[in-house]
Design a binder for these strands. Structure first.
Length: 571
RNA sequence: GCGAAUGUAGUCCAGCGGUUAGGACGGGGGCUUCCCAAGCCUCUGACCCGGGUUCAAAUCCCGGCAUUCGCACCA
């Protein structure tokens, strides 16, 4: 049943023909790595976003924001993208081959990626390093940053970048969000939006885009509590994991994976599961879905642990979602670069009271003896701890000259201290969904082509299908068209898209709907007008081609029920 | 970014110095009681862009852009 190797070209052709996606700027020859969404595609994409939002906003109670796509340079200095997201490149002056400059000196330097372009130039000359391809001289080392750079405002005083991920917009709003959440963790924030990466060579259609859509979730949690309240509900569910120690797929329960230390913690495990549920609900084939742990050296500069949801596409296993434990990296960095405290005040369940021994100066004795210096000496005494007392005496050091004081001037007292909490930098769990890749995966996994009949069907889940129901008159005359238009009007709404089609033969119209994945079609035939079936029409199921007769007046209700998940057989 | 191949209606293909640039499918309109891309009539619509060679370029040459494949790159 399942198409073994979907031809990406055939599917892309269908996508263009049927209004799913179009290569951008085709009118002017096109730009690699950029695509526009057509009406059916955008509808499908919106449906995907709606379901994602349903899971995180309604299901988990997360809040949604929207932030700017152009960010000042400081943001990406803090995030590390200015330094980490660029590669130092050099080009052979003879054969023009490009090379990562730091890779060429990795045998010479312990840590070549800290070298500056200038230092690398010098290193090439000093060590006689030439082009690995042809031996030619290497050109000057240049920085190639994958971020699109711009300036904010007139002149070029303020450098800005188009964001390479939406996440930073959430991190820079941490304090606002934290207050909005009334100073509590966990704090879940979601955002959809575009990110931009100036890919050197975009390939593989929608898989590597220069301007792409993300659905990002940032969950701020207590670093000492990486459990999740709903974890027990899902702990016995199984999924396919590819841990980075063996690299071999294994099927196991979440609890087993956490227990064996394969998945770092429960909250990460929970959201890996949530991701699986979401992707399957959207129509990703469970048999072509796995979760692969990043290799140690593959982890992003910010990640503590990272799992990719990978889908098997005609391009091979492809990352469609990354679920990372970013630790405290982002907030620590933004705190450092902005000079602002970005912490969570973690209240203890009960304030911790401890008894501590402190040294207390006898100010009554000090005053008369030291006059004006008394206050200073008192604070010096109180800065000491009981452990500093030797033979009942303390040695102070005012102005570099030793001063010994006896216990007539101080006493050891026991005080009760109350600590009601501590400040911690929240850790961030980030499920980051590549919307365009998910969109493409949903299409590829839904696509089925029968070469014998030259017939293509998109077996989209009804929930994501751009058009829910096609409405046809068997022939566009004799009043059949009027009945069909009336049915169309009664069903078509902003939630349920219905499509009226009266042109061409009936088979052609079914074929058109099958090609955009419309799950059901209603046809008004002559029996609707007279005879024993008067007042009824047929409804056809895309995946089986089976038809049932239903009363005209019930069409809207029945389509609604089918969308709710009622099986077609049960009609 | 390098190398190779390719670029003709919406799609797939033909044409390879002089053609009203041809077909199939699709799309629009019409006819047909028409339920799975049926049939008949009819209409629609293309030489990637820019230079050059030539009396004449879709066709040959150069450059650009794009696509595909290798190499390189890729949170």
């Amino acid at each position: 049943m399942t198409q073994q190797s979907t031809d990406a070209g055939d599917l892309m052709s269908l996508c263009r023909r049927r209004g799913f996606v179009w290569p951008s700027f085709e009118l002017y020859g096109g730009v690699a790595g950029m695509f526009d969404y057509g009406p059916t595609g955008f509808s499908l994409r919106n449906n995907i976003v709606d379901i994602w939002r349903d899971i995180y906003k309604r299901g988990e109670g997360f809040v949604e924001i929207d932030s700017e796509t152009v960010n000042p340079q400081e943001v990406f200095r803090a995030s590390g993208h200015v330094d980490q997201f660029s590669d130092l490149m050099t080009y052979c002056s003879v054969c023009r081959s490009p090379f990562r400059a730091d890779h060429l000196v990795k045998d010479i330097f312990e840590n070549p990626d800290v070298l500056s372009p200038r230092e690398l130039d010098v290193a090439f000359a000093a060590n006689g390093i030439g082009c690995p391809e042809c031996g030619g001289a290497l050109g000057p080392v240049e920085e190639f940053n994958l971020m699109f750079r711009t300036t904010i405002g007139p002149g070029s005083s303020r450098v800005g970048y188009l964001r390479p991920e939406t996440a930073q917009g959430i991190f820079v709003n941490y304090l606002n969000l934290y207050r909005y959440n009334r100073d509590k963790l966990p704090l879940g924030v979601i955002q959809t939006g575009r990110g931009y990466r100036n890919e050197i060579a975009p390939r593989q259609g929608m898989i590597r885009m220069r301007e792409f859509n993300m659905m990002e979730v940032e969950l701020f949690v207590d670093p000492d509590d990486k459990d999740w309240i709903r974890y027990p509900e899902v702990k016995d569910r199984t999924l396919t994991l590819v841990p980075n120690d063996t690299g071999e797929p294994v099927v196991m329960t979440l609890d087993e994976a956490v227990g064996k230390g394969i998945i770092a913690n429960r909250v990460l495990a929970y959201f890996i599961h949530v991701t699986r549920e979401l992707l399957v609900r959207l129509g990703v084939d469970p048999d072509r879905l796995r979760f692969r742990q990043h290799l140690e050296d593959e982890m992003a500069h910010y990640a503590a642990d990272c799992w990719d949801a990978e889908a098997l596409l005609s391009y091979g296993w492809t990352e469609i979602t990354g679920i990372a434990d970013r630790g405290c990296w982002d907030l620590s960095r933004h705190a450092e670069f902005s000079g602002t405290d970005l912490t969570h005040f973690k209240m203890y369940d009960t304030p911790r009271e401890t008894e501590v021994e402190r040294i207390k100066a006898k100010r009554r004795e000090l005053g008369p003896r030291f006059k004006a210096d008394a206050g200073r000496i008192a604070s010096l005494i109180e800065a000491m701890t009981p452990a500093d007392i030797v033979g009942g005496r303390l040695v102070l050091d005012p102005d570099g000259e030793a001063l010994e004081v006896g216990d007539d001037l101080f006493e050891v007292v026991t005080v009760r201290e109350k600590v009601s909490g501590e400040r911690v930098v929240p850790h961030v769990i980030e499920p980051s969904y590549g919307l365009d890749r998910i969109f493409y995966t949903v299409l590829e996994h839904a696509y089925e082509y029968d070469a014998a009949k030259d017939y293509a069907v998109l077996r989209l889940k009804p929930e994501v299908a751009p058009v829910k129901v096609g409405v046809f008159p068997l022939m566009e005359k004799d009043g059949l068209d009027e009945v069909a238009r009336e049915i169309h009007r009664s069903i078509h709404s902003h939630r349920v898209e219905a499509y009226y089609d009266g042109s061409g033969t009936i088979g052609r119209r079914y074929a058109r709907m099958d090609e955009i994945g419309t799950p059901w079609c209603i046809t008004v035939d002559y029996e609707a007008l007279e005879g024993e079936h008067k007042g009824t029409v047929t409804i056809r199921d895309r995946d089986t081609s089976l038809q049932k007769r239903i009363p005209i007046g019930d069409c809207g209700r029945i389509v609604g029920e089918l969308l709710e998940g009622k099986p077609f057989d049960a009609l």
